[in-house]
Amino acid sequence: MKLLVCIKQVPDMESRFRPNSQGIWFDENDLAWRMNEYDEYAVEQAVQLREQVGDSAELTVLSIGPDRVVEAIKKSLAMGCDRAVHIRDDHAATKDPWQIASIIAAYAKGQGFDLIFTGMQSQDRGSAQVGVTLAEELGYACATTLVGFAYGDGTVTAKRELEGGIKGVVKLATPALVTCQLGLNVPRYPTLPNIMKAKKKEIEVIAVADLLTEQPLTATTSFHPPARKGGGVVLEGDVGVLVEQLVGILKDKTAVLR
């Protein structure tokens, strides 16, 4: 059984984001990078399936980006992926989801992956497109926003998370692609021996130019902070004073405190 998990490296979301010199994405200097949170669940689920199936399964992790993404790749290898593909692209951030999905599709086509895992979206761009678009390009069955996953006899039983806490249960025949939602499982910590052993696992490097044939379908024309709508009061300062101020406002504006 051939498994693929696609991951993205994103900045720590607690960072302060500043527009880059072209003003169309963030300035990458001084950012700390980590694996997209949604993708951690995807990797964990793929590794669990890899363990369930045993040695007849092979799990490949794929990431597109500059050399820094190797750290996220190595984390996936340490978590239990067997091999990796690094599609080297110093300008991955300027590609739109259509191009990213097409690059992966160009790689995956004809490789016979039975099951592909992705996160439901990235934390930085948040388009929620790459997984579904990839499935569509490959002609795979696809379910999004998984909070439950089981596999047996060529069939995936997936629980999709719907609004209001309801879940939709679906069955997919392989080949299939699933996009993973937060809370799907409990992503493991990579163990130190596995981090070291992952060094010996293969990382195939492919230049993005070898796979990219598509032009972007969208253009980002600006990246900026949200306009402050104003209206709300911002209180800052000493805790003791803040409490007095807030209680004053609550007494004034709500019926809750008198």
């Binding site: 934390q123 948040g126 253009a219 990246f223």
Partner: peptide
């Protein structure tokens, strides 16, 4: 495709990004 549009800005769309901390203006081509 432009995902999760929150507003319009002449011929383009406003979308959130970076966990809603920032915005992008996106134009379909």
């Amino acid at each position: 495709q432009v995902s999760e549009v929150i507003g319009l800005s002449n011929n383009a769309f406003e979308v959130g990004c970076c966990n809603a901390k920032m915005r992008r203006t996106v134009k379909p081509a």
